[in-house]
Amino acid sequence: MKLSILDQSPIRIGQEPQHALVESVELAKAADRLGYTRYWMSEHHDLKGLASSAPEVMLSYIGAQTKRIRLGSGAVLLPYYKPYKVAEVYNTLSTMLPGRIDVGLGRAPGGGTDVMTTLSDNFLQQAFNMPALVEELLHFLQYKERVDTTTLKAAPLPLVPPVPWILGTSKKSALLAAKYGMPYAFGQFMSAKDPGEVLHEYRMNFQPHQAQHHPKALLTVSVICAETDEKAKELALSAIAWNIQSERGENKAGLLPIREAKEYIDKLKDSQVKAEIEKKILIGSPRTIKHKLKSMQDAYQVDEFMIVTFIPSLEERLQSYTLLANEIINKKTS
């Protein structure tokens, strides 16, 4: 079982965005040491509590301070951008960091209506044209031959091209990945849909590609890990409060500390909301989390999980990832 990390650069209450980004660098360096397969950074715009608006900038900085871990976007919100420029950026990263760059692609707006209209004059139309945008980008990433006769290149051309992924939570995104023979990442942490049905569609419709002969999929899951199940449940309160606030549009300043998160949750009159959120998060000790991931691995036939961990304390967030790595990645068997 492979483990990877999706980082959204969460900002704690009272914390400056700079500190959140510095903590992202520390997380990536730790992931590199611990044996995680990938570190991806998400792209969000004007969302209170998240500092990850320009992952491509951070990836170059992180790449200079890590040695082997794959780095990528989770995801480039392609309807906002020209595929040619995206290819130039990630080809440059791959030229500097050969064999280490992924390009995760998504069609979500990553922010509110104001973001959509400010970043793009025609976001909805471009989102509708997502398949054409993907096909054009694949050409410039040297992943797919183009049918026309253009000789335009997205220089610099790396010796090892970046690997494009489709990220999504629907059959539509899965079928798009399958059509072009691309790896697929299902965002279970942000979806109530059954991954099994979506991944089945992906595998059944996958068209082999010279760079990807077989379907390859991972699941992105929310995880809170601590030494004991009880401690993990306590640490999870901030993530639970964050999710509830997000659904209600109440995220104003960032991640709540544990005590304040507990007070916020205790004041909720509808306990069912908390229960529904808890279902989306894997909470427990290393052994508990390993058992849960193994069950999901058997059910969905994936060999890689991308972990999202929302804990206000950097020390405890790093410990969560360390405990998982020691239990799953680096544990020696007799």
Score class of each variant (00 low, 15 high):
residue 86 V to K: 02
residue 146 R to M: 11
residue 254 G to T: 07
residue 314 L to T: 10
residue 84 Y to E: 15
residue 52 S to I: 11
residue 223 V to Q: 10
residue 263 E to I: 07
residue 232 A to G: 12
residue 151 T to C: 07
residue 117 T to M: 07
residue 263 E to K: 09
residue 320 S to H: 08
residue 317 R to Y: 08
residue 105 L to N: 00
residue 119 L to G: 04
residue 58 M to Q: 06
residue 216 K to F: 02
residue 156 P to L: 09
residue 49 G to S: 10
residue 32 D to I: 08
residue 64 A to I: 02
residue 279 K to W: 01
residue 4 S to H: 02
residue 120 S to E: 07
residue 311 I to W: 00
residue 158 P to N: 11
residue 208 P to G: 11
residue 142 Q to A: 14
residue 56 E to I: 06
residue 289 I to V: 15
residue 86 V to W: 00
residue 255 L to W: 02
residue 254 G to C: 09
residue 93 L to M: 12
residue 96 M to L: 14
residue 180 Y to F: 15
residue 49 G to Y: 03
residue 323 L to W: 09
residue 7 D to E: 15
residue 118 T to M: 12
residue 113 T to C: 02
residue 242 W to R: 09
residue 93 L to C: 12
residue 116 M to V: 15
residue 231 K to T: 13
residue 122 N to T: 12
residue 182 M to V: 03
residue 296 M to L: 15
residue 232 A to I: 12
residue 113 T to Y: 07
residue 82 K to V: 04
residue 242 W to A: 13
residue 293 L to P: 00
residue 86 V to F: 02
residue 71 L to T: 05
residue 145 E to L: 06
residue 168 G to C: 07
residue 273 V to C: 08
residue 152 L to V: 15
residue 121 D to T: 11
residue 74 G to P: 01
residue 65 Q to L: 15
residue 38 R to S: 04
residue 326 N to A: 00
residue 286 P to A: 11
residue 104 G to D: 04
residue 97 L to F: 15
residue 222 S to R: 03
residue 117 T to W: 01
residue 215 P to I: 00
residue 207 Q to H: 09
residue 200 H to G: 03
residue 130 M to Y: 11
residue 82 K to N: 14
residue 106 G to F: 05
residue 293 L to H: 02
residue 124 L to E: 13
residue 193 K to L: 03
residue 298 D to E: 15
residue 162 P to F: 05
residue 18 Q to N: 10
residue 171 K to M: 11
residue 140 F to H: 13
residue 175 L to S: 05
residue 313 S to V: 09
residue 20 A to F: 01
residue 33 R to N: 10
residue 186 F to W: 05
residue 264 Y to A: 10
residue 195 P to I: 00
residue 68 R to F: 02
